[in-house]
Write a protein that binds this DNA or RNA. Sequence first.
DNA 1: GCTGTTATCTTTCCAGTGACAAGATCCGCC
DNA 2: GGCGGATCTTGTCACTGGAAAGATAACAGC
Lengths: 189, 189
Amino acid sequence: MSTYHHGDLRRVLIAAALDLIAERGPAAVSLRDLARAAGVSHAAPAHHFKDKAGLFTAIAVQGQRMLADALAEELENSGDLRLLGVRYVRFAAQHSSHFEVMYRPDLFHQDDPELVEARARTSDLLRAAIPGDGRAADRQVLAAWSIAHGFATLRRAGNLAHLLPDRDAEAEFAEIAGLLEMRTRNPPA
Amino acid sequence: MSTYHHGDLRRVLIAAALDLIAERGPAAVSLRDLARAAGVSHAAPAHHFKDKAGLFTAIAVQGQRMLADALAEELENSGDLRLLGVRYVRFAAQHSSHFEVMYRPDLFHQDDPELVEARARTSDLLRAAIPGDGRAADRQVLAAWSIAHGFATLRRAGNLAHLLPDRDAEAEFAEIAGLLEMRTRNPPA
DNA sequence: GCTGTTATCTTTCCAGTGACAAGATCCGCC
DNA sequence: GGCGGATCTTGTCACTGGAAAGATAACAGC
């Protein structure tokens, strides 16, 4: 028996890595540990990911796609840039391991084609929340993305303890995002 | 000869580490490399920093203090929260290695007393830019910090290529921060 | 000038890691 | 039924961080 072929190794390795990242950060991830946890030899992961960076690349791609999906859904539903921000903050909290990896370019292969594509999709979706193509529209998107991303990362890093009340962080972010002069809805086509 | 005692090892090691981080990220830093570069044995760094995390802690403390100093100066001069944001963005660009480390809690000893103090100082300075002590004031600070931090980190990670024009990023940030409903100046005492 | 104390640095060693090469095993497909 | 490629293993290498034990220098007090 002994499934010489594990059959599902790639998925299992990624799942184990995500767990580990959530607990102790990406630096604590070791391919050999993952292999042990999956019950395979220490060299098995290399076949699926080539590199350690390859593993993180796979995670970044996955995360980028999940984020894009979430944003696409919100764009479809409300088209409200502020709610897109809330969604972004929620994603960062719910899929913190993915999020963590996605914004650490030193961890993965930045030029991976799948990654580049998924990244562009996220970027385009955000851009699509504001009609028009002028510099002013760009700035609104930039402001909204920045505030959402900053809030999410500062929160993760534990820098907001003194300022952020205990209540629902998403609701709090919605208040904060309200300080931006926009909240523009897409005109109903 | 043979300066058995290097005399300035601590400073030299930190400087070398900062260079390396700027070039290839914190993950590329190896204590042994730094030791080689400084011309000492591979165990010498341990005496000054205890840990690898200790080295990063020292860098984080240094960065946190530099940031606090910069913010304090701006607070003194203008008291304008928006300009504090500009200063924050500038700091992130000019001292990118420090900045990088400061917001990676998995890299250093989070409970280091010096670190905790320096962190608190930064936080308090930001808070001091808005008078009053209500939730509304907290939110303004939170919004300003988030947008500055988000802008700085997204820029570093290379996510803004499509949205950010080539011109001076600080000036661009000033525009963006202008979208926040505040710009409150401290009442002149 | 001598001594003991402490800070700084070296040598030696160990377990763990990522990467690579070469081989074993299995699967699908003609 | 056999071939080729995908999947996994074994063995090895250079490197890393950390710990232990010792060497050397600086220094304070006398």
